[in-house]
Amino acid sequence: MYEKLVLVQEFISQPWPWWMGAVVIGSTVFILLYFDKEFGLSANLRIMCAADGAGDYADFFDFDWTKQGWNLMIALGALFGAYMAANYFGGDYQAHISQATVETLNEIAGSEALTYGNVPIVPGKDVVHAEVPEFWEIYSWKSLFTLRGLIIIVVGGFLIGFGARYAGGCTSGHAISGLADLQLPSLVAVMGFFIGGLIMTWLLLPHILRIGF
């Protein structure tokens, strides 16, 4: 019995192919629609602001957030799911990115720190059971106290929170729920995501990553 469980664990621990996205995202959307809800995770930021009393400062947060507690439960569930995936089904803890991407990343770092087939899934060694070169040690408290880490974590978070509400949704609300509902505004928002993403990745990120290195 135990041996069979180990086999199941090993099976799940393999890297998942891209088409599993259809299963994961499709089933999430189906279940939420069935329970008369809509998938959109960034709404949780607004809910958490409202729950902290932000309604006293702006009407935008003056709504009955308790009716949207289900969305917070999704975020809470995602937290547990990630804990299980990262700690018990992590597999080789690699991001199986292309050779071309490895080369581009090494060019930015100015070193050969990453090699094809040996890239940590997340740039931070707290959880990943794989080697993380110093240059790519970003998701950590130590990194937060450097200018580079401060920009990536604090400014990045601010842009996500501000932009998601300004655009009225994020990757789940617009790129999944909105596009699936054939909403033209969502398509425009996704185009915006890509405009911003391309500007950041190509023009700004290489310079930000090199701060202090």
């Binding site: 501000f162 932009g163 505004p185 928002a189 915006g192 993403g197 950041m200 930000i208």
Partner: peptide, 14 residues
């Protein structure tokens, strides 16, 4: 959608 989306995209990539 354009401005908010662009700001979000910058954070996403950062």
């Amino acid at each position: 959608y354009i401005i908010g989306g662009t700001i979000f995209g910058m954070g996403w990539a950062l």
